[in-house]
Amino acid sequence: MKTLAAIILLLLTATHVVAGDLTVSVRDAQGRPVRDAVVTVHPAAGVRGPVRFSWPLRISQQDMQFQPYVLVAPVGQAVSFPNLDRVRHHVYSFSRGNRFEIELYGRDETRSHTFRSTGVVAIGCNIHDQMLVYVRVVDTPYAAKTGANGDVVLQDVPAGAATLRVWHPNLNVRGNETSRQITVAAAAGRQSVSGDFSGRASVR
């Protein structure tokens, strides 16, 4: 895993009075985009109803790797683990609140697991040590991860006070996460949060 020493630049824009689209850009110290940073917004007024996302809640095992490397999943919903390799895999996690184990299963077979607690779940394969994936389990619909361009857009975020959080497996702070208080209606412009990405990702 390439070490990153980075500064996170958060570009926040609110485009409506009642609810707005919040754009967050994550860049390193050289201005390069940082991908797979999970951005969440937690409105002070709370959220209502079940949390749903448009992307598949699926982690494939292919070419001796988990894909994708980071998945954002709602708490209480099942994530599938299809095995597309010719070899068997043994999926497990020791993460607090979300410990689980899926014993050996083979090609074209699928297993699933429901994550019952919010937080970060580091997942590995008990047979192939190089395989590593993270599931960020959230209880807010205003969550997504940055793409290759380092940007993410959270849609229809309610106006008002909120907590903005950025998590990345290499962010070298407690919990690999930094947070700040924002007011969505007044969030237009640029804000910055410094961060050190020199930490090492681990399944432990």
Rank of each mutant, 00 (worst) to 15 (best):
M1I: 07
A6F: 15
I7M: 05
I8Y: 11
L9G: 07
L10W: 08
L12F: 02
T13M: 10
H16N: 13
V18T: 13
A19M: 12
G20A: 15
L22D: 01
L22T: 01
T23Q: 04
S25L: 05
V26A: 11
R27L: 12
D28M: 02
D28G: 01
A29L: 12
Q30F: 09
G31C: 03
V34T: 00
R35G: 10
A37E: 11
V38Y: 03
V38L: 02
V38M: 02
V39R: 08
T40A: 03
T40H: 00
T40Q: 03
P43D: 04
A45M: 07
G46M: 05
G46S: 07
G46I: 12
V47E: 11
R48M: 08
F53W: 10
W55V: 02
W55A: 13
P56S: 12
R58N: 13
Q62V: 13
Q62A: 09
M64H: 10
Q65A: 13
F66T: 14
Y69L: 08
V70T: 06
V72H: 05
A73L: 08
A78R: 08
V79P: 11
N83W: 08
D85M: 12
V87G: 01
H89N: 11
R99D: 05
E101N: 06
I102Y: 07
E103M: 07
E103N: 11
Y105N: 11
G106K: 10
G106L: 08
R107C: 11
E109W: 13
E109R: 15
T110Y: 04
T114N: 00
R116F: 07
T118H: 04
G119Q: 03
V120Q: 00
V120W: 01
V121K: 01
I123H: 04
G124L: 13
G124E: 09
N126V: 01
H128R: 10
Q130N: 10
V133N: 00
Y134D: 04
V135K: 05
V137A: 03
V137S: 04
V137T: 03
V138S: 06
D139N: 14
P141N: 03
K145T: 02
N149A: 15
G150C: 00
G150T: 01
D151S: 07
V152C: 03
Q155S: 04
V157D: 14
P158N: 15
P158C: 12
P158S: 15
A161N: 15
L164F: 03
L164E: 04
V166M: 04
W167A: 00
N172E: 09
V173N: 11
G175A: 00
G175Q: 00
N176W: 09
E177C: 13
E177Q: 12
S179P: 13
I182N: 14
T183E: 12
T183P: 05
A185C: 06
A186F: 13
A186K: 12
A187W: 12
G189E: 07
G189M: 13
G189V: 09
R190A: 13
S192E: 15
V193C: 08
S194L: 11
D196W: 10
F197I: 14
S198D: 11
R200C: 01
A201S: 14
S202Y: 10
S202N: 14
S202V: 15
S202Q: 07
V203F: 10
V203K: 11
R204A: 06
R204T: 11
